[in-house]
């Protein structure tokens, strides 16, 4: 199994429903978030290009955050989901420094927190909170090893990119363009 997420930049309107859904589902403390919206305007007037993205941990294939964690609190579970065991985390910040995507943050209680791909929902056969609320269906979550999954089909037919590929972490958030 290899879980991944596709994010259709042509559908996203930047409503931030995914952000709020995640905060509610995962009890993210106020003032913090595990996913967020980025807007880019590229080009030279009048040829402008607007792109809106919903970003989160990329659940990288090659995980610098897990490698640099001194205690093993950061780890990879079935399906390539990257998680943090709160009771093992000493809050050293090594994983925060090693993530090119700034996907991790210090929870006010001291440990490091981040997107879990809603593994508790996924284990129950459901999809992630952000995917389930997106009003434009810009987000797709699924298993890349299953060629029949919606995400595999999207990636087979659409053009896509990943962010900061040069950072070398093999990110698993695919942005459909």
């Amino acid at each position: 199994m290899r879980y991944a997420m596709a994010m259709d930049t042509s559908l996203c309107v930047g409503c931030a429903d995914c952000v709020v859904a995640c905060q509610t589902e995962n009890n993210v403390p106020e003032g913090y978030c595990r996913d967020w919206i980025v807007e880019n305007v590229d080009g030279t007037y009048p040829l402008l290009d607007l792109e809106i993205r919903s970003e989160r941990c990329n659940h990288c294939e090659d995980t610098p955050c897990v490698r640099t964690c001194p205690t093993g609190a950061s780890h990879v579970i079935e399906g390539g989901i990257v998680k943090v065991t709160h009771e093992e985390c000493i809050g050293c910040g090594a994983c925060i420094e090693s993530c090119p995507y700034d996907a991790r943050y210090f929870h006010p209680d001291g440990y490091v927190d981040k997107c879990t791909f809603c593994d508790h929902r996924v284990a129950a056969g459901d999809t992630t909170a952000c995917v389930s609320v997106c009003p434009t269906h810009a987000l797709t979550f699924g298993d890349l090893h299953d060629s029949e999954s919606e995400i595999s089909k999207l990636l087979a037919t659409r053009k896509y990119k990943v962010l900061a590929e040069e950072a070398g972490t093999k990110p698993q958030l695919y942005f459909l363009t």
């Binding site: 403390p29 913090y32 978030c33 980025v38 305007v41 590229d42 080009g43 030279t44 910040g93 943050y105």
Partner: peptide
């Protein structure tokens, strides 16, 4: 030339300055 004109990043005041994790 393609230029980046504008980017709005994440703007969570509790996270983004703190991401400077090492003092």
């Amino acid at each position: 030339m393609k230029e980046r004109l504008f980017t709005s990043g994440r703007n969570m005041l509790d996270i983004d300055p703190v991401l400077h994790a090492w003092h």
